[in-house]
Amino acid sequence: MAEYRICVVGAGAVGEQMVRLLRRRGFPAREIVLFARSDRTQEIDGESYEVRTASAEAFEGFDLAFFAGTEGAKGASQTYGWEAVKRGCTVIDNGDDFRMDDRVPLVIPEINPDALDRHQGLIANPNCSTSIALMALGPLHRAYGLRRVVVSTYQAVSGSGAGAVRELEAQVRSWVAGEEMACEAYPHRIAFNVLPKIGSLKNGTPSEELKMSRETHKILGDDSIRISCTCVRVPVFTGHSEAISVECAQEVDPAAARELLEQAPGVRVVDDPGNEVYPMPVDSENREDVLVGRIRTDSALDKGLALFVAGDNLWKGAALNAVQIGEALIGRGMM
């Protein structure tokens, strides 16, 4: 098997997870180099990696570049994405700069791998909440046809970056000590609280909710699906959870839906609520599969089904999906 020169742009939480998963999954990498704002050496899982200062010229000679940008972190892919492509490097971008660009496929390998055939050198990773939801919604749409989707998300603070993780921990310590809680990452305290707005407002709708709708339409190739979404930040370190109700074009039996999802790649059905078995973010951390459970009829919707999902937002919601896109490119003979 051919081996590839790999670079990861961004040495933060998602970048580290990308390197970790490239190694864990045995990606055929001859070399892995990190790009960031300054030169240094960074240790990941006991192994030292060279960190180089990012520049357009730095991408010369690399086969594949993983851009690890987190949500709302502008700059790296805007500055270097197409520059890397010009230099013969295929780019997989975790940020949101090019997701809705007509030139750029938006890909979940288990759901729409054929979209890779149309790439022009740059491929986008979906938003974390979209990826986790569609691992369940994709198979249901193929089998029953989705007409309406209503989603409420419960999103971990790690989706906002390392600073938000530190802030939650510091606020919990302050609460225990009876001290005032400092708020920097969020406008209000996150400890023992929930924040029902993620992202900036665009025409009165938070950007996180717009992403869920637009990205779902693009990935599933169906703009007719009506989508209502409320995205909520919760005091959980890692692991996004989502309560989802769907209205289908065909009658859907919960037992048949459960069997369908049990066969879906990348999904693990965890559904025995009578014995307190259901998806939880704590169980999704460092797990490649998305957990799906609480599968039941939703009587409020015509031909309705309700379910609950949980997934690691740093893995399937970011780094893992990007690595899987790289694997899919190789598997399709496109590298």
Rank of each mutant, 00 (worst) to 15 (best):
V277R: 12
V277I: 15
V277C: 11
V277S: 10
V277H: 13
V277F: 13
V277P: 10
V277W: 15
Y278L: 12
Y278A: 06
P279F: 15
P279Q: 08
P279G: 06
M280L: 14
M280Q: 11
P281Y: 10
P281M: 09
V282Y: 15
D283H: 12
D283Y: 14
S284T: 09
E285K: 08
E285S: 02
E285C: 07
E285D: 05
N286F: 15
N286Q: 10
N286W: 15
N286D: 07
R287W: 09
R287Q: 09
R287E: 01
R287K: 11
E288C: 09
E288H: 13
E288K: 02
D289K: 04
D289A: 09
D289C: 10
D289Q: 13
D289I: 08
V290H: 02
V290N: 02
V290D: 00
G293W: 05
G293Q: 03
G293C: 07
G293P: 03
R294L: 15
I295G: 05
R296M: 12
T297D: 15
T297Q: 14
D298P: 09
D298T: 06
S299V: 11
S299G: 11
S299P: 14
A300W: 12
A300N: 10
A300E: 12
L301Y: 11
L301T: 08
L301H: 08
D302I: 02
K303V: 04
K303S: 09
L305M: 05
A306M: 08
A306G: 14
A306I: 06
L307Y: 03
L307C: 07
L307N: 03
L307E: 03
F308W: 09
F308M: 08
V309S: 03
A310G: 02
A310M: 09
G311S: 03
G311W: 09
D312T: 05
D312F: 14
D312R: 06
N313I: 07
N313F: 11
N313K: 01
N313S: 06
N313W: 12
L314T: 01
L314N: 00
L314R: 00
W315Y: 15
W315S: 00
W315F: 15
